[in-house]
């Protein structure tokens, strides 16, 4: 039941993130104008297009027919407007549609989550394979380095490194979130690989003539895969929460990139516009919960 709910939440979030332009935007999905019908047409959009449509023309708009970065709706700027028929979840401090920003924010959050999970898993696999393959001093060095890096407080590390190196943007955030999680995952992967290499079936494969590389990749790695999948889900959940916290602090996604954390930051700056805080908070909690629920199941 919990797994099904988690998969459903993640499927909806991923679908919304992948199809954000089709769900929220001011570009019509289908436009019938001057006798011709275009699917996903180029040219004028939003209010500019509405103004030139005649009685014979029609357009099929996305469910949320607002651009996430447009500050004007019907020619007017309406900052911090509560929910209405024109803006289902109200507007933010610049008059941008919150529902549209929530939809496009899913893309930012999930991109960071997927990027951090993939990078952390790749780093962990590389470190674990290196440690187990080399053994001895290299193994000890990797273990100590992983212990040290994994213990670093992630938020403070991202803030400090961004300030020290002067790197801003989503890619440094993904890298800085992935490195400590990768180090943590590498410890799990290393332990899994070592346990598998000592198992009877690996001994049997060795006796049958399998080389060390083949033993690692074909026999030990599948044994460590469930732990890696669990760690990847935890990393993704951590990244969703960290992105929200970092953007809330002003060091995550840079404006005007839509982000769930940015909506939370605006809610703080403007004395709790509930329509800013509530949907973003629910979205972050739901996605993080679903990822953690999957991780728990995998474990």
């Amino acid at each position: 039941m919990r797994r099904r709910a988690a998969v459903a939440v993640l499927a909806v979030a991923a679908g919304v993130a992948l199809c954000a332009d089709l769900v929220a935007g001011d570009r019509p999905l289908v436009l019938h104008r001057g006798g011709a019908t275009d699917v996903w047409p180029d040219g004028p959009r939003g209010d500019a297009l509405r103004a030139v449509l005649t009685a014979d023309d029609w357009a099929l708009w996305p469910p949320i027919a607002r651009d996430p970065t447009a500050v004007r709706a019907a020619g007017a700027v309406a900052p911090l407007a509560p929910p209405s028929r024109g803006h289902l979840l109200g507007t933010d401090d610049r008059g941008r549609d919150v529902a549209a920003r929530l939809v496009h924010g899913a893309r930012t959050s999930l991109a960071i989550a997927a990027g951090a999970a993939a990078a952390a898993t790749a780093l962990a696999l590389g470190l674990a394979l290196l440690a187990v393959r080399a053994g001895g001093a290299v193994d000890a060095a990797v273990r100590v380095a992983c212990d040290v890096v994994a213990a670093a407080p992630p938020l403070l590390t991202v803030i400090a490194v961004q300030g020290l190196v002067g790197a801003r943007g989503l890619v440094p955030v993904i890298a800085l979130l992935a490195i400590p999680r990768g180090a943590d995952t590498a410890r799990l992967a290393r332990a899994g690989l070592r346990a598998a290499l000592a198992a009877p079936w690996t001994e049997a494969a060795r006796a049958a003539g399998a080389g060390r590389g083949r033993l690692l990749v074909r026999h030990a790695l599948p044994h460590a895969a469930p732990a890696l999948a669990t760690a990847a889900a935890v990393t993704a959940a951590t990244a969703v929460l960290a992105e929200a916290a970092l953007t809330f602090l002003g060091v995550g996604a840079a404006p005007p990139t839509p982000s769930w954390g940015e909506l939370l930051a605006q809610a703080t700056a403007h004395d709790l516009g509930w329509w800013l805080a509530l949907p973003a908070g629910i979205a972050i909690t739901a996605v993080a919960w679903a990822l953690l629920a999957l991780a728990r199941r995998d474990a």
Binding site: A265, L272, L292
Partner: peptide, 18 residues
């Protein structure tokens, strides 16, 4: 506990500050 861990501290803080 699962919900508490998944809830962003920033969101809780906004609600608490209010």
């Amino acid at each position: 506990a699962a919900l508490a861990v998944a809830t962003p501290p920033a969101w809780l803080a906004i609600l608490g500050a209010d």
